[in-house]
């Protein structure tokens, strides 16, 4: 319900949104807030995407498992199955914003600013990308959490663990 309300609030016109699983919906919504609607974004941004979470795609994995748990009512849904990997949400963001650079999804127990800092800076230093969309997008049963930020060689904030932790903890 929250996601649908947010979709309407941000005036997103993207029917494919309703076909996504909850993790992808959350990731796409968070990216929309940060990057804006695609028509207002810079075209062909050389932007990598590095996301992380704790629950992986478990929220959708459970839903899929339910659809194949009864041998007498065995009708696995292809539309659910395609979301049984966490990195699919990166694909959805990339399609929406026309991003074609490096991308990775990592699973951690908690938000890991040190790892994300090192990984994103390595992408920038090796010229794999001009910007890196980083963060934490987690959905599991009734809880959800999204924290995205952009890293580039220029910006208003220092890119270090303390700063990321502070931003992450700011409601």
């Amino acid at each position: 319900m929250f996601m649908k309300s947010a979709y309407k609030h941000f005036e997103i016109d993207y029917p494919k949104f309703f076909k996504m699983d909850r993790l992808s919906k959350l990731a796409v919504l968070a990216a929309e807030v940060l990057l804006g609607h695609p028509n207002t974004s810079k075209e062909n941004r050389n932007m990598a995407v590095v996301l992380s979470n704790k629950a992986s795609s478990l929220d959708t994995d459970r839903k899929y498992q339910e659809s194949i748990s009864d041998a007498h009512n065995f009708y696995p849904s292809p539309a659910v199955f395609v979301y049984t990997l966490p990195n699919i949400c990166i694909g959805e963001i990339s399609i929406r914003h026309n991003l074609r650079s490096e991308n990775s999804f990592f699973i951690f127990d908690t938000f890991n600013p040190g790892f994300l800092k090192d990984y994103s800076e390595s992408l920038l230093h090796s010229d794999k990308a001009d910007e890196v969309l980083c963060g934490w997008v987690d959905v599991d049963e009734d809880s959800y959490e999204a924290f995205l930020y952009l890293v580039s060689s220029t910006g208003n904030h220092l890119h270090n663990e303390q700063q990321l932790t502070k931003l992450y903890r700011t409601p």
Binding site: K19, Y75, P76, S77, P78, A79, V82
Partner: peptide
Amino acid sequence: SIDALELIVMLDK
């Protein structure tokens, strides 16, 4: 194409 697969499942189910 994913919708097409869903329609195939729907025909069966």
